[in-house]
């Protein structure tokens, strides 16, 4: 993946299984919008403000399973002693939010 943008765009496409889809007819496009702008992608779009496809100061989220992401976010949320930015942010998300974000970003194969 050459850059962050490709990562975020392909991430959303792969969720929908639409990577090879070009133009679409009306109802399908509307449905695409419904899914690509739905709850999970809307929550997860906050992540790409900091996380890119490379890990320097901040870890890349690529290559993690849904379970690994969910466990990590839950640990951040429940660690009362934690002081990092991710501890402070994770406390604001419900376990349901965390599951949705993890399912969205933990897409197995970005192709």
């Amino acid at each position: 993946m050459p850059n962050q943008r490709a990562w975020s765009v392909l991430g959303s496409l792969s969720l929908l299984g639409l990577a090879a889809c070009g133009g679409a007819d009306g109802p399908q496009q509307s449905q695409n919008v419904e899914q690509s702008t739905g709850k999970a992608s809307l929550l997860a779009t906050a992540c790409s403000g900091c996380h890119s496809d490379v890990s320097t100061g901040i870890a890349s989220l690529q290559g993690y399973s849904v379970e690994a992401l969910q466990l990590s976010l839950s640990n951040y949320k429940s660690d009362a002693e934690g002081t990092t930015v991710m501890h402070r942010l994770a406390r604001g998300y419900s376990e349901t939010d965390i599951a949705l974000i993890s399912q969205y970003l933990g897409a197995e194969d970005l192709e």
Binding site: G49, C50, H51, S52, G57, I58
Partner: peptide
């Protein structure tokens, strides 16, 4: 500070 630098790179790239 390292996170800040990474953040700037990421958000300007986005």
């Amino acid at each position: 500070a390292a996170q800040a630098a990474h953040w700037f790179q990421t958000i300007t790239n986005e």
